[in-house]
Design a binder for these strands. Sequence first.
DNA 1: CTAAAGCTGTTAACGTTGATAATACCTCCG
DNA 2: CGGAGGTATTATCAACGTTAACAGCTTTAG
Lengths: 241, 241
Amino acid sequence: MPVDPNPAGLAAEPSATAREQTRRRIIDVTIDLLERGGRDAITTRAVADAAGLQPPALYRLFGDKEGLLEAVAAHGFTRFLAAKHLDPDPQNPIKELRAGWDLAVEFGLANPALYTLMYGEPARSTIVFRMGLELLTDRIRRLAVAGLLRVEEDLAAQIIHATARGAVLTWLSLPESQRNTALLRALREAMITAVTNEEPVVQEQGPAGAARALRAALPDQRVLSHAEQRLLTEWLDRLSA
Amino acid sequence: MPVDPNPAGLAAEPSATAREQTRRRIIDVTIDLLERGGRDAITTRAVADAAGLQPPALYRLFGDKEGLLEAVAAHGFTRFLAAKHLDPDPQNPIKELRAGWDLAVEFGLANPALYTLMYGEPARSTIVFRMGLELLTDRIRRLAVAGLLRVEEDLAAQIIHATARGAVLTWLSLPESQRNTALLRALREAMITAVTNEEPVVQEQGPAGAARALRAALPDQRVLSHAEQRLLTEWLDRLSA
DNA sequence: CTAAAGCTGTTAACGTTGATAATACCTCCG
DNA sequence: CGGAGGTATTATCAACGTTAACAGCTTTAG
């Protein structure tokens, strides 16, 4: 693993290092090759040729063909997200969740070869997989704060990802004549009902509202001891104030 | 495409033709190689060697490496289904639908390499894809007859397939420490509510929802000490589950 | 019974692929 | 000026998918 050529992080921001520039160029031509000729069009020779290099140069920059593919996957996704502008201050968290799911699916349908590269084999690119999941955390957090989350946050992220992944891959497997957007809508709404509550379980947002809601529901719980519940109740009272 | 050596369908049932026997042997050793060494372990030379043949023999039997992989995918699935015995006269079609979905997912989790081969790339094996969908038609038909189907039959099949596919691939992408069968249950029930008219069981919310809301809002609070917040977070995690 | 036809499988080889060692270029710094 | 260190190149390797040419064996035709 090569070290950062600019460890101090000084200046040098405007134009990235030459190394980074060639990396970007290679990644770009690789994505181009991928979308043009499919997965098998990516050979070290073809990529090097399209980037104006010789094959061994790739190995110094990416270590491996797998490394190149990982870099391509990661960059392809972030590039797509950068093109879209996300609502900076959303108000309806469920609406926002729908939009996020649609965005992920749209990416897959618009870049089938790249998507297949990223999410076809489960073995590859746990990095990209985690990137995608972490992208959801903010949205899910907002749902939780609003008292709209039906399941744990991690599980919610997994459900959202799984439905989107199944939607994209199934869609791409269907012959065009059988593709119907009703499939996408149905899966999205199934995701919504699995992840969210229709009615918020807390009246007002913030710690105080949530604390009051929890305090009201506390008598039903069975996982805390009496002593724990006593102390918890005290804290909830303080938080409610 | 070679013609059936026994077009009349007379006798000759007990032992298949020699051609079919070697095909089976090759397919078997290929599945073995696949499960043992992953996708890349399938090379024409390795397969031929394991089957006691020379590589060109494969080309006469399967035409192509892709043809071999198709045959492997198709046979792997049917072999799994043959091992399970399906309820010949089911009475509750929704229960049967759940069982069918579980079966498909179970197959994926038990044969990850084979499943990835079949359902990783959407381009490959539209044959196997259709086989899987058609396997659902009977179950879906029974739902429709009972008046329990919420959507068109084709769409229902697609939804069932997509949720199972997303479930398996997502599960396999997760590190073992994060795998939780709640994901599978949640996706299965989401599928049920999307496909059938069954009223979703209004699961008792209890304190979990409020606990999740409070946990998400906790970083904003200012009335509890660090230590108190730590302990509280732990309790909230338990209450959320 | 003999000879042609047809499978089935082999040997040998071709072009391509991912990958690496050895080497040349080039720039920066003392 | 003269190394040092990074960068890219040439030459090459082993492995892969695939094909042509040919050899053994069984079945069928005359």
